[in-house]
Amino acid sequence: MAANSKPPRVVRVKQTKPNRFLPMAWRVERLSPTEAYTIRWGRGAGYFTVHRGDIGSSPDDAHLIDTVHIGHDWADEADVAAQLRTWLRHKANPHRRTA
């Protein structure tokens, strides 16, 4: 190595952790032709969010109406559907639009 030359630069690549909230599950429940609710639940999150309308698989919170902390992970699609039905049975009335 010459007196003026610098040692080779070592570039370290930052290891990123995988997103622990993926995959996500979405479930839509239609109560009427004009009323629907979507539940979104990220694996490992410990909570799910409820949105007014059919938001598809959007990560957006524009139509967010409730966040429900439940402290456990979702097991499968049936678990997500059951949580949404439970929320609808116990919590939906204050959020429902009147005619």
Rank of each mutant, 00 (worst) to 15 (best):
V50D: 04
F48G: 10
I39K: 01
A45D: 07
E35L: 12
K6V: 14
P33L: 06
D66I: 11
W41Y: 08
G53C: 14
Q83N: 10
E77A: 15
G44Q: 05
H90F: 10
H69F: 10
Y37S: 10
S32L: 05
F21P: 05
H63V: 12
L22G: 09
A82C: 01
A82T: 06
V28P: 04
A78Q: 14
A45H: 06
K6I: 13
R40Y: 01
A2K: 06
A75C: 13
R9W: 00
V10N: 02
H90D: 14
I70Q: 04
H63N: 15
M1L: 11
L88G: 07
P23Q: 07
T86A: 13
P94L: 00
L64M: 06
M24N: 10
Q83F: 05
P8Y: 06
P23I: 06
R43Q: 09
A45S: 12
G44V: 00
E29F: 12
P59K: 05
T34L: 13
A3E: 12
A82F: 01
Q83C: 11
G42V: 00
V11C: 03
V80F: 02
G56V: 03
S32Q: 07
V13F: 08
N93H: 04
D66C: 08
T38E: 06
A75L: 13
H51E: 08
E35W: 01
D60C: 08
R89Q: 09
F48P: 06
W87L: 04
S5W: 03
W26E: 02
V68M: 08
D66W: 00
T34H: 14
V80C: 05
D79S: 05
D60A: 15
A2Y: 04
K6R: 07
G46L: 03
R20V: 01
R20P: 12
V11Q: 09
Y47P: 02
T67K: 14
P18C: 09
V68A: 06
D79K: 02
V80S: 06
D66R: 13
G71C: 05
D73L: 03
R89P: 00
I39G: 10
K91Y: 04
V68L: 08
R9Q: 11
P94A: 01
P94F: 00
R96G: 03
S5Y: 01
F48Y: 15
K17Y: 04
M24R: 11
I70S: 05
L84V: 04
P59R: 08
S32K: 11
R96M: 05
A82W: 01
H51F: 07
A99V: 11
I70M: 10
G53T: 09
H95L: 03
F48E: 03
N93R: 12
P7D: 12
A92D: 01
V11K: 02
P18H: 07
D60I: 07
G46R: 06
E35M: 12
K91M: 09
P94W: 00
A81Q: 08
D60G: 09
A78H: 11
S32G: 10
D76C: 05
H72Y: 12
K14R: 15
T16G: 13
R89W: 00
D66S: 14
T16N: 14
G42S: 14
T98C: 11
I39R: 02
V28K: 05
